[in-house]
Structures are given as structure tokens and as C-alpha cells.
């Protein structure tokens, strides 16, 4: 009897989450999947087929764009990790009390403004008549104005900047839980700083690294504004293609198929990443 009641309570508590999952995630995806299977054969005439998926694989442009997006996102993730790790280590291990809170807040500051404003901020810095170009000219380091916008490096800068917090937070959390005496024990047993990093700190921080990387990778892959605004004429990004299909081409069928391919391929990359780092999604999410 009590057991039944406990079960009922459990399901009632779970219900809002289930409804949320079902109506906001499962149903739209199901709808999108059905749309992606419709092949347009004439005005208001559709047939069920995989033709939209075939378009992706037959047109090099599309899978090239996907490969480029994935490659750039992986690179952005790696760079974010590379830059974020020392920052997180510094915050978690070398600071205390108020300094720690202040530094943590400083990582948050960029998120007080919208992504659009943040991106415009970078445009002001990087453009030909922008701050950096002017400072370089003023210092006499360059002869004329330099354009730092509208290239892959600018996209990368924007992506790393936008993602930094999502890498630093899980890293700080896991590094915080690393007992200082483990590091001291490592030194005491004769290890160099690098050996300690490799054998003790990184293995301990692995769940944080993996969850940070998953979040950053997904954010980069799904980013739309940053590549378009900072990348300019070289801003080929898969989400941009999806947007174009839905909005400017009125081709929902192809757009849905692209959306599903993005979902599938990004899941695949995350899966491979987890396998390579020998982490499981459950473990990663539980620890951070």
C-alpha cells in the first residue's frame, strides 16, 4: 500500500519532466523527422523517401560544410580546453576566498550581455578600422590598417570566447575536488610538474574535461551568429545552411534532413570522444 503510494508520488513528481521532454523535445523532433522524409515532387505534392538525405551525401558542398563545421568545432573545443585548463587550475587551486569568487565572476562577465553584443564587441576590436588595428598602427608595428575580421581565426576567437565559461565551470568543479595532498604526494614521490599534470591532475579532472568538451563542442557546432558575423564571406557553417534552407529557401524538407544529420553526426562525434577518453556519459554528468 505504502509502496503503491510511493510509486504514485514518484510518477507524479516525474510527470512535469516527462511532459516537458515529450512536448518540447520528443514531439518536435518526431515532427521534424517526418518532414525530412517528404520529398517534394511538385507544387504541394510530396512523396515519402530519403531523397533529402541523399541530397546531403550527393552534394559535396553540404558534407564539406559539415566536415568544416565539425573540424572547426573540434579545434575550438581543443583550444578552449587548452586555454581554460590553466585558468580553471588557477581558480581552483591557487586562489582562496574572495579572489576565487572575483575570478569566477570575471569569467561570467561576458555573459551579462547577449551573444550578439559580445560578437559586435569582437567586431569592433578586430575590424580594419577597429581598436587592435589602430593600436598596432599607433605603435608603429604595422604600416597600414590590418583586417583581422572575416576569416577562420576570427571565428575561432569568437567561439573560444563564447565557450570559455562552459569549459571553466566544470573544470573548476572537478579540480576543486582534487585533494591538494595528492599533488604534494606526487611531488614527494619524485614526480615533475608535468608528470603530476599527466598522471594525477588530468585523470582526476577527466569527467570535467569531457563534460566541458561536450558542452563546448555542441555550442560551437550549433552556433549561428558568431560564424556569420565574424566569418563574413568565409562564414560557411552548417547551422547557417539549415537556417537558409528553412528561412530563405522555404525548403523545410531539406532543412529537417540537415537538422537530423547534424543531430546524428554530432552525437557520433561525442560518442567517439567518450570512447577515446574512456569515459561514460553517465559518469561524466554525475561527477560535475
Amino acid at each position: 500500500m505504502a509502496n503503491d503510494r510511493a510509486k504514485l508520488t514518484f510518477w507524479l513528481l516525474l510527470a512535469p519532466l516527462m511532459i516537458w521532454l515529450l512536448t518540447l523535445i520528443v514531439l518536435p523532433h518526431l515532427g521534424m523527422f517526418l518532414v525530412s522524409l517528404r520529398e517534394k515532387v511538385g507544387v504541394r505534392e510530396y512523396e515519402t523517401s530519403f531523397a533529402n538525405y541523399a541530397v546531403f551525401f550527393n552534394e559535396p558542398l553540404y558534407w564539406n560544410t559539415f566536415a568544416r563545421t565539425a573540424y572547426m568545432s573540434v579545434t575550438a573545443t581543443a583550444l578552449t580546453l587548452f586555454i581554460g585548463f590553466p585558468i580553471a587550475y588557477y581558480i581552483a587551486k591557487l586562489t582562496r576566498g574572495r579572489t576565487k569568487t572575483t575570478l569566477f565572476l570575471m569569467c561570467l562577465i561576458p555573459f551579462w550581455v547577449s551573444e550578439l553584443v559580445r560578437t559586435f564587441g569582437w567586431m569592433i576590436l578586430l575590424r580594419e578600422t577597429g581598436v587592435i588595428s589602430n593600436v598596432l598602427q599607433y605603435l608603429g608595428l604595422v604600416g597600414g590598417p590590418v583586417e583581422m575580421l572575416y576569416n577562420d581565426a576570427a571565428i575561432m576567437t569568437g567561439l573560444v570566447y563564447t565557450s570559455m565559461l562552459f569549459m571553466v565551470v566544470p573544470l573548476v568543479t572537478t579540480l576543486d575536488s582534487l585533494d591538494d595532498s595528492l599533488i604534494e604526494a606526487g611531488y614527494d614521490l619524485g614526480a615533475s610538474g608535468f608528470a603530476i599534470l599527466r598522471e594525477i591532475v588530468i585523470p582526476h579532472a577527466m569527467p570535467g574535461i569531457v563534460s566541458g568538451c561536450i558542452v563546448v563542442f555542441m555550442l560551437s557546432l550549433g552556433n549561428y551568429l558568431t560564424p556569420i558575423l565574424l566569418g563574413g564571406k568565409d562564414s560557411l557553417w552548417f547551422t547557417g545552411l539549415i537556417y537558409n534552407q528553412f528561412i530563405t529557401r522555404f525548403n523545410w524538407e531539406l532543412g529537417s534532413a540537415f537538422g537530423f544529420l547534424l543531430l546524428g553526426l554530432s552525437s557520433l562525434i561525442v560518442f567517439v570522444g567518450l570512447k577515446l577518453s574512456r569515459q561514460s556519459l553517465g559518469k561524466t554528468m554525475a561527477q560535475t
Binding site: D179, S181, L182, E184, A185, G186, D188, L189, G190, A191, S192, A195, E199, I200, P203, H204
Partner: peptide, 26 residues
Amino acid sequence: VSMVFQHLALFPMMNIGANVGFGLRQ
């Protein structure tokens, strides 16, 4: 000199053999 820490500071990410062999590996 070597030190046994208050909470021992055994490395949880390694098995017992790797813990004991840590210093030799270095």
C-alpha cells in the same frame, strides 16, 4: 625523503600497483 600524508593521499585514479610504482616510474 618521503611522506605518508594524514589522509594517506593514495591516488584514486590508479590501482594499488601503480600507486606503489609511481615513484619508480618517475
